[in-house]
Amino acid sequence: MAKDLCKTLADLKEDEVLAIVQEKLNAGADPMGILADASRAMEIVGNRFSKSEYFIPDLVYSGEILKKINELVKPKLTEEVGTKKGGKVIIGTVAGDIHDIGKDIVVFMLDVNGFDVIDLGVDVPAQKFVDKIKETSAPVVGLSGFLTLAYDSMKQTIEAIKAAGLRDNTKVMIGGGQMSDEIKKYTGADAFGKDAMVGVSLAREWTGTK
């Protein structure tokens, strides 16, 4: 009998996880059931991370395993279902800042958690965010910036979104180096994320994704 996928994935046992998934698929298991188990496992991983039982590399490692599960399951899914169900999120490092590793981790974690992520890269001008929101109607925008210098750029980007008449339908989260309620207020963002998992939680909450 196959081992418990949820527990094995939550324990980050990559080889065992992939073997279980393959075994289940070979036995004709419902691919959506496999993804549901994986989703529950990722919740456990998130909880362990919030309790400092897991660390950022563990979190990313869980994402990489999930990505491999998705690759195995994807061919078995109908076209309509797919693995993307979380909605669109536009993300980028704001103008003047070129730091990318933190942003890339958030992009990765959103992606493996089912969001359709539009990564605009680094040093992104405010207008580019505005244009992309208009083009995609994405309801969530993530602004990344590492240095204190980025706060003004975040503020200007949010003001540009507002000036374009898009703010009412767009939730904005900020993340990067030092984040606080004060900086959230200063920039005009809706929320800040101190790590990638908070970013995923916010995106879920704002898009109504479970």
Partner: peptide, 18 residues
């Protein structure tokens, strides 16, 4: 190299090398 890993979807390697 970090950017290459990141762009190639190897996020774990990217962050560990960083």
């Amino acid at each position: 190299q970090v950017t290459e890993y990141s762009q190639g979807g190897e996020t774990l390697r990217a962050m560990l090398l960083d």
